[in-house]
Structure formats: C-alpha cells, structure tokens
Computed example of a mutant assay.
Amino acid sequence: MKTLIRLFFRTLRIVLGPFMLLKERLSRPAALQRSAERQAEVDRQCTELALYQFKTCPFCIKVRQEIHALALPIQLLDAQHEGDNRSALKQGTGAYKVPCLRISDAQGRVQWLSESGAIVAYLRGRFVS
C-alpha cells in the first residue's frame, strides 16, 4: 500500500510539476529596484545565504517568488535528489524539510531557517529598506 501511495504522488508530481513551474514563471513579480551601490551591498550579503528547495514544492515556489521580487541573488540548491545538497540539509537540520534557508556569518556560524512564511518574513525584514 505504501508503494502504491508513493507511486501515486510521484505520478502526480510528474504530471503537475511542469504546470506549476510555468505558473511560477508567468506570475513572477517585478523585481525591486535599488541604487547600484545598495544592490551591490545586497549582493554581498546574499553570498551568506542559500536556499535548499525542491523545484516543484509549492512552498519553495512561494519563497523563490519573494526572492525574485526582492531582487536577491540567493543560491538555490536542489535537495530533492540524493547528493551533497540533500546530505548537507539533513546534517544541518536533521530532516529533509524544504524550503530551508541556510544563513552563514563571517565567523562561520550557520543558522537554518525553515517554513516558507518565516523565510519570507526574514528576507523582507533584512532586505526591504
């Protein structure tokens, strides 16, 4: 029964995934405009951030839309498939839950922020002036 349920959701993801990505692309908000100096500072700060995500996860799409709206060059890391990104997410948070924002600082400390609403609130608070 468990295999049947997994097969159902995998098939659903394969069928609906392209439509979700198309909708994301077509409904992308306009990017925030900043002065060149301010954008350079934002770009520098974003080197400390990375978003672990699944391509067709609706909550990840919500966060990516906000990243685009705020004109943030945050590294997007696919954690859906086996590999280094998935392992790093599991090691850092203890789970494979996405979206998850990795926040590093100059001293090498790392914080992990999950939940799409919390990530969006953090990005707005940090980058909307």
Rank of each mutant, 00 (worst) to 15 (best):
103 I>A: 04
99 P>E: 03
10 R>L: 11
15 V>G: 04
70 L>C: 00
13 R>W: 12
72 L>T: 04
6 R>Q: 10
124 R>V: 03
34 R>G: 06
99 P>L: 03
112 W>F: 14
37 E>Y: 10
39 Q>H: 08
66 E>F: 00
73 P>A: 02
107 Q>P: 10
116 S>R: 00
48 E>S: 15
81 H>R: 13
118 A>I: 00
107 Q>L: 12
111 Q>Y: 05
95 A>D: 04
106 A>C: 12
127 F>D: 04
84 D>R: 13
28 R>F: 04
99 P>G: 05
52 Y>Q: 06
105 D>T: 11
94 G>N: 06
28 R>Y: 06
14 I>R: 06
114 S>Y: 02
112 W>M: 14
126 R>H: 05
8 F>Y: 13
129 S>R: 09
95 A>P: 01
56 T>H: 14
54 F>L: 12
43 D>G: 05
35 S>T: 14
70 L>V: 00
66 E>R: 01
25 R>A: 15
97 K>G: 01
73 P>V: 01
11 T>R: 09
74 I>A: 02
59 F>A: 08
26 L>M: 15
43 D>P: 05
1 M>D: 00
93 T>P: 05
76 L>H: 08
90 K>I: 04
19 F>W: 15
72 L>R: 05
60 C>T: 12
38 R>M: 12
89 L>V: 06
129 S>I: 02
116 S>C: 01
46 C>A: 14
69 A>D: 01
82 E>P: 03
103 I>W: 03
3 T>E: 13
32 L>Q: 06
15 V>I: 12
24 E>Y: 07
38 R>I: 11
67 I>D: 00
31 A>I: 05
57 C>W: 12
14 I>H: 07
72 L>A: 04
33 Q>T: 11
67 I>Y: 02
61 I>L: 13
111 Q>V: 06
78 D>F: 07
59 F>I: 06
99 P>T: 03
97 K>C: 02
4 L>D: 03
4 L>C: 02
19 F>I: 13
41 E>A: 13
23 K>Q: 13
